[in-house]
Write a protein that binds this DNA or RNA. Sequence first.
DNA 1: GGTCAAAATGAAAACGGTTGTCAAAGTCAG
DNA 2: CTGACTTTGACAACCGTTTTCATTTTGACC
Lengths: 128, 128
Amino acid sequence: MSRSAEAVHETLRHSEGFRSAQDIFTEMRADGAKIGLTTVYRALQALSDDGRVDVLRTDDGESVYRACATGDHHHHLVCRHCGHTVEVAGPDVERWAERVAAQNGFTEITHTVEVFGTCNSCTASAER
Amino acid sequence: MSRSAEAVHETLRHSEGFRSAQDIFTEMRADGAKIGLTTVYRALQALSDDGRVDVLRTDDGESVYRACATGDHHHHLVCRHCGHTVEVAGPDVERWAERVAAQNGFTEITHTVEVFGTCNSCTASAER
DNA sequence: GGTCAAAATGAAAACGGTTGTCAAAGTCAG
DNA sequence: CTGACTTTGACAACCGTTTTCATTTTGACC
Ligand SMILES: [Zn+2]
Ligand SMILES: [Zn+2]
Ligand SMILES: [Zn+2]
Ligand SMILES: [Zn+2]
């Protein structure tokens, strides 16, 4: 793993929620890092290939990345306002996916499961 | 709803799986329809706003559309080879999502749940 | 130190799906 | 038929991402 990839990973580990390549690039530059946008993209690619960061797509088609605490399979509960993210295990969902797939003769299953909502601190701010 | 939007909806209803705007455009043109790509995009936008078609994003960032049989909330089991799609209800997943959200203080939940796999007819072809 | 090949880098160009523009065509009530 | 309003579609613009390719950095070997 290249030096820049480590730097990108480091930046990501200091972030709470999912961040876009542009976000990361801008932040690293602001912090004085000499890095190009292309390199950030390449680093994110490598990191996600290695399973060291999770990727998901926003509604508007942007890829966003996060350095999750666990390398094990998990899903996310994401605040759509502040980006605050909680990693959640979903044994029930895993079983449901396998069952429904088996019932319909599907094999080699993969799945995407993400939950979006408003976190309690954002709810509090809105009420204030 | 405009005339073209109905035509797009009609084309979509004759399709089995999820189709891209380009796909639909190409097929309609091949069938002799006089329609522009822009209009197809506008129709798909309108149809999905009205909940008459479902949209999902492929891994490579393309939006694909499908006229599902039910207007009720449901998820999809999609064959990643032939696109064959089964609509599935997921009461267990719905409950799981609400529970995990509540446990973490999240409200106003939405979720995306899609299952991808290989359908039995594609498994059969591969073995042949 | 020096040499050199392989790997990494980044500015700029290309790419591809999608959206915006705007003038032309269609629709329809009066 | 007229005029207002809507719909259409060729084309350009947009934007996140990938590719290109010349330059720089790295690291093994001397
Ligand atoms: Zn929040
Ligand atoms: Zn899972
Ligand atoms: Zn199939
Ligand atoms: Zn659901």
